[in-house]
């Protein structure tokens, strides 16, 4: 079964001065364990799609189903990861990891242990008692992912999670997070403006047009599963695909 199914979805934002058509006739489905990226010119409604899937906003028309039901943030299917790590500065790392568990009233010993195990497994074990400001940007973003994973979501919504980081950290964290998502068997939807990043991680890339966002092209990727995102970047296939998607987005910009 599809984990996400979006059919004929339209979204119009209302404000006092005007209304903005953000998304037009979007059709999209995501299979379990798939890694899908959404790229497109800025302002095309990429993040809006994630907010819809998370149930934070409702579509104007059309339907959206997550595991067959209307999305609702109170359910535990989606884990949302933002551009900024959004850790609470007054809590240490361990307590930050428990934040989601507290909100969902799931702060049991078992779940706490699970969160700490994840942290230890992905190299954060010795930092549990530190405060966010004592960690590097890349580490904080990893804490943020583990905070999300602590709730055992099946679907991860990644909203440009690397864009606030410097280039080197970004490449390393890309590998790390890809590894974590694959080894924890999660489905993921990544929103990014970085085409290379999308190519290096995804099974499928969806290119959106300029506002109102429509699905302009879909690219299926078939890299060897053993390749890391960093290794993928250096293949000829990646370079060709980059050119294709670049052209598609460029054309969109020309249309504005």
């Amino acid at each position: 079964m599809d984990i996400v199914k979006i059919e004929n979805l339209n979204l119009i934002y209302q404000s006092v001065k005007s209304e903005t058509k953000a998304l037009e006739d979007i059709n999209l489905d995501v299979q379990p364990y798939e890694f899908v990226s959404i790229v497109g010119p800025s302002g095309c409604g990429k993040t809006t799609i994630l907010s819809l899937i998370a149930g934070l906003i409702k579509p104007t028309s059309g339907s959206i189903k997550v595991q067959g039901e209307t999305p609702n943030p109170k359910r535990d299917i989606c884990g949302y990861m933002f551009q900024r790590d959004n850790l609470l500065p007054w809590r240490n790392i361990e307590k930050n990891l428990y934040f989601g568990l507290e909100i969902k009233h799931k702060k049991t010993k078992e779940n706490k242990d699970y969160a700490c195990e994840l942290a230890a497994k992905y190299g954060l074990g010795e930092f549990l008692k530190k405060h966010p400001h004592e960690l590097s940007g890349g580490m904080r973003q990893r804490v943020s992912l583990i905070r999300t994973l602590a709730l055992k979501p099946e679907l991860l919504l990644l909203d440009e999670p690397f864009s606030a980081l410097d280039y080197q950290t970004r490449l390393n964290l890309c590998d790390d997070i890809f590894h974590i998502i694959k080894s924890e068997n999660k489905t993921a939807i990544l929103v990014t403006h970085d085409i290379q990043e999308a190519i290096s991680m995804s099974d499928r890339i969806i290119v959106l047009s300029a506002r109102p966002g429509k699905v302009k092209a879909v690219h299926k990727l078939d890299f060897k599963p053993s390749l890391t995102p960093f290794e993928r970047r250096n293949t000829d296939k990646a370079k060709q695909l980059f050119d294709t998607i670049w052209q598609e987005i460029q054309n969109e910009k020309a249309n504005i």
Partner: peptide
């Protein structure tokens, strides 16, 4: 209060 932090809480269904 930081709107982004509130967005995190909302995404968790707080």
């Amino acid at each position: 209060c930081d709107k982004q932090l509130i967005a995190v809480a909302k995404s968790l269904g707080a």
